[in-house]
Design a protein around this nucleic acid. Structure first.
Length: 353
DNA sequence: CACACGTGGGA
DNA sequence: TTCCCAAGTGT
């Protein structure tokens, strides 16, 4: 049995390698050995499509050519470069990790798996990717692509997040790994998952159907098996855009919540739809209100956010405190905003870029 | 370990 | 329109 699996793994390894040579995918972070830039690309590509991350990678590698440049940057600038890419914790972790590399590793990117894995925001997948791509170390990547390929090929029908299933996938990934060319192999198997063994599979043109358990049992559409997502929570944001002459008041989101580190206006969150007159009963300072008619909606991974905006012209001498900054309209482009706030500002004609 | 964390694109 | 995501990690 073990011998059979080993033979199958060898067949898979060779066929995927051959497929990869026939289907090259040039990308800016391919064929480089710079561990910092490889790391950058891997963080950007987490849960992100290649096309969406492409320009961000170019922008980051230009703005921060070295890990020292990134470490020295202000987090607001890093987030501004990240603006629109989502999962902003990645940017904050990467910035912290850059400083970690400067302080702990003397500015030299670590070159062993455990040190790489110790960086903030670097998990098992990313550590294996960097170790294999930059240093040729024999660590198999296990990402969504690899999980999809291996569960189908080996007919693993259990829920993929369960610990035993995940362990068996990791073991298979190690077995299939080409220890002589780990980097090339890892890129090949991920490409294969991205282009051939896709969620909606293309079995009619797949070179591995003869070796595929799911194909044989007509289970390709049911593997990999995932848990059903929970229904999304609905939230209702009422933004008060306090302003005075050419200044708008904004504040950085700091709580452990969505969009941490990004900027927004004075926010009143309600558990359900409310009339504006109820929402604005207890504003902190005197103002003249003008309610915007447009409503904005954004669907996130685990919540649906509805946002309305009201302009609030400050009438008295009192100013907003507690973390709020008055920012000239022309300087708003220096700050990173959530998509939903960005959309509002664009609709209002505020110059953001 | 279940859950939160963003956004844009394709079917 | 609605759903499912896309090179995962931290808590």
């Amino acid at each position: 049995m073990e011998t059979a699996n080993r033979n199958k793994s060898e067949t898979i390894r060779k066929k995927i390698q051959q497929w990869s040579e026939e289907n090259p995918r040039p990308m800016p972070w391919r064929s480089i050995k710079n561990p910092y830039l490889i790391w950058l690309s891997e963080i950007i590509l987490q849960q992100t499509r290649v096309m969406q991350g492409w320009d961000y990678y170019l922008k980051f590698s230009e703005s921060y050519p070295t890990v020292k440049d990134l470490a020295d940057a202000h987090i607001d600038d890093v987030l501004k470069n990240w603006e629109g890419l989502g999962y902003y914790q990645r940017a904050r972790n990467m910035h912290a990790a850059a400083q970690q590399i400067v302080s702990t590793f003397e500015g030299r990117f670590p070159d062993d798996y455990d040190s790489i894995r110790s960086l903030k925001g670097v998990g098992d997948y990313t550590a294996s990717a960097i170790a294999s791509f930059a240093y040729g170390l024999p660590h198999a990547v296990v990402d969504g692509n690899v999980i999809r390929i291996l569960t189908r090929l080996f007919g693993i029908s259990g829920i993929i997040t369960s610990a035993p299933v995940r362990r068996s996938i990791d073991a298979l990934a190690d077995e299939v790994l080409d220890k002589d060319r780990p980097g090339k192999h890892n890129q090949a198997i991920m490409d294969f998952g991205a282009m051939q063994c896709t969620p909606a599979p293309r079995c009619e043109s797949c070179p591995l159907t003869a070796d595929c358990s799911a194909f044989k049992d007509n289970l390709v559409g049911q593997i990999p098996l995932k848990k059903k997502p929970r229904p999304k929570r609905e939230r209702f944001f009422y933004y008060i855009v306090f302003h005075q002459e050419e200044d708008l008041y904004i504040k950085k989101r700091s709580q452990k919540d969505v969009w941490e580190g990004l900027y927004e206006f004075y926010l009143i969150e309600q558990p359900e739809v409310r009339d504006w007159h109820q929402v604005v009963e207890h504003l902190p300072i005197p103002c003249d209100l003008e309610y915007e008619t447009a409503h904005y909606k954004q669907t996130l991974s685990h919540q649906i956010i509805h946002a309305r905006f009201a302009l609030a012209a400050i009438t008295g001498d009192r100013l907003l405190k507690e973390g709020y900054s008055a920012v000239n309209k022309k300087k708003m482009r220096n700050f990173a905003f959530p998509k939903i706030v960005d959309c509002y500002l664009r609709d209002k004609g505020v110059n953001l870029n």
